[in-house]
Amino acid sequence: MRRSALFLLFWLAGSLALAFTVIPLVELVAEPGVAGVVRAAQLPDVRSAIGLSLGAAAVTAAIATAIGVPLAWVLAGRRFPGKGLVEAVIDLPLTVPHTVAGIALLLAFGREGVLGAPAAQWFGLRFWGTFAGIVVAMLFVSLPYLVNAARIGFEEGVDPHLVKVARTLGARPGRVFVRIALPLAWRGIMAGITLTFARAISEFAAVAMLAYYPMTAPIRIYEMFLRFGLGDSVGAAVLFLVIVLVLFVVLRHFAFGRAGQRGFGR
């Protein structure tokens, strides 16, 4: 009897959580109908904004993987002075309001910024109102997801004994990383890439502060909402949502597969 009551309570809580997420999205999808979505898809501005968002998020995920996975490996396997501080810095973007992050990025990567000025001078790379700016803003807010997921992947997937054995078998640390650690942690890394991509593509505030133009999909939808109201922006929103959801489902399938289907039993 007690177990049934507990089950009911948990079921109710879970249903509320799911409903909270699903109902607004269902409402959104139902609003414009297929015709509204098709109409939005025919707008060149909407198509280019969605393409830009997808491209920038993909580049962001790639950069995050390139710089975040090695860091995650170090954090998972090494003890060093200041490790706690490094971990806190990695997580910092999760706690900083994204408008604040945008201003910080503007100061650092703007024309006169400590990173923006030399990048422009030496490499001709500008961030204010450019694709590179969009990527920088997306990277800032999404990098923690990559590092943390990959780190968990390394911690849970790579038995330290395997690393030690590989070293004594003659493999240098780089080879151990490539041949042993990466294959065993790939699910965690894929989960990190999925989350990073999802977080990057959905970013609005930080991107808007650093690179309002060219417009990414969230900014284009916001702009349509301001200029034409809810009616016209909903079609673009649903189109963007569907594309992102399909991508998310595909990536999630690779990242998680059938893992997580084991239960506690009754």
Binding site: L162, V165, A166, R167, T168, L169, G170, R172, I180, L184
Partner: peptide
């Protein structure tokens, strides 16, 4: 460094690389 010592290290439960076949483990 460990990789230069030429020691054979056998650990708890033998620490075989789970993602590699028997032949690949030996080849490593």
């Amino acid at each position: 460094v460990p990789e230069a010592r030429r020691v054979a290290y056998v650990l708890q439960n033998f620490a075989l690389f789970p993602h590699l076949s028997v032949a690949q483990n030996v080849a490593f």
